[in-house]
């Protein structure tokens, strides 16, 4: 769709432009201790550049050929990416946490579109429901009043932004290389229809690739469970033990550390 808008630009130029725009955008957006007006200008500029960068990445991306599926995917993906960017650049950690929750919602949507129904739901439940709440609790306990100085500045923002953008460039370059082969999208009509309908009724495998996956079958979760507790039972047990260890460890550290930290805290308060 967007590629058709920018047909004359070569993929290489598009990639280079995208990387540059990403780096500049992130650099402008990251907190850098500027004064009020300059900071606001920089942030607006950064968001604009970010949109440009996003557009260029979309332009390099592979097209589905189905407007509906693409629209759904684009929507959730954009939610995830923009919220993720906002998480990174938010000055206030509380806003960052809330943006992160938004990003989680987007990721859950992406997972759903990609066929991971259980994972999408689990991400919402586990992350947004448990982990994020824990973060907010910690913030409530720890965050001092007002905007702390260290939230207003960044560590080497330019270098970090460039590094991130270059990494993104390398990754998308290698992903883009995959498209050198002609996509087998033409075989996907049935799956696509089933996905959009949200039902498993039309889930007949239509290709060899689809034969083993069959993610849209109505017993999806049961089959995932069978896989998990069948082939990966030992790993599940180990993960359970890991959770227990982490639980005990956290308690041990927090109860010991409180005693150690008390004098330090007293010293800090004294002056």
């Amino acid at each position: 769709m967007i590629a058709s808008i920018l047909p004359s630009i070569s993929p290489g130029t598009l990639l280079a432009g995208g990387i540059t725009a990403t780096a500049a955008s992130l650099w402008l957006l990251l907190p850098s201790g500027r004064s009020g007006a300059a900071d606001r200008t920089a942030r607006w500029l950064g968001w604009l550049l970010g949109i440009v960068a996003l557009a260029s990445f979309l332009a390099t991306g592979h097209r589905l050929g189905s407007v509906g599926e693409e629209a759904v995917f684009l929507t959730v993906a954009l939610v995830a990416v923009i919220s993720g960017a906002a998480t990174v650049v938010s000055r206030s950690p509380v806003y960052a946490a809330i943006w992160f929750a938004m990003a989680l919602a987007g990721v859950a949507g992406v997972l759903l579109v990609l066929g991971g129904q259980f994972l999408g739901v689990a991400t919402i439940v586990v992350y947004a429901g448990a982990i994020l709440v824990m973060f907010l609790f910690v913030l409530m306990l720890a965050q001092p009043a007002g905007l702390a100085p260290y939230d207003r500045v960044s560590n080497e923002p330019l270098l970090a932004a460039v590094a991130g953008a270059v990494l993104l460039g390398i990754l998308s370059l290698s992903i883009g290389r995959l498209t050198a082969e002609p996509p087998s999208c033409c075989l996907m009509s049935g799956t696509k229809a089933a996905l959009l309908a949200g039902s498993g009724s039309a889930a007949e495998p239509t290709s060899a690739a689809e034969a083993g996956i069959d993610m849209l079958a109505d017993n999806h979760v049961a089959r995932l469970g069978g896989e998990l507790f069948g082939r990966h039972l030992l790993a599940v047990e180990v993960a359970g033990v890991l959770l227990l260890v982490a639980l005990i460890g956290s308690i041990a550290i927090v109860s010991r550390g409180a005693a150690d930290a008390a004098p330090a805290a007293a010293r800090r308060v004294a002056p």
């Binding site: 560590n155 080497e156 270098l159 970090a160 590094a163 990494l167």
Partner: peptide, 10 residues
Amino acid sequence: VQRYALAGVI
């Protein structure tokens, strides 16, 4: 630590 991490990433 962040500088070290940055150096590692670069």
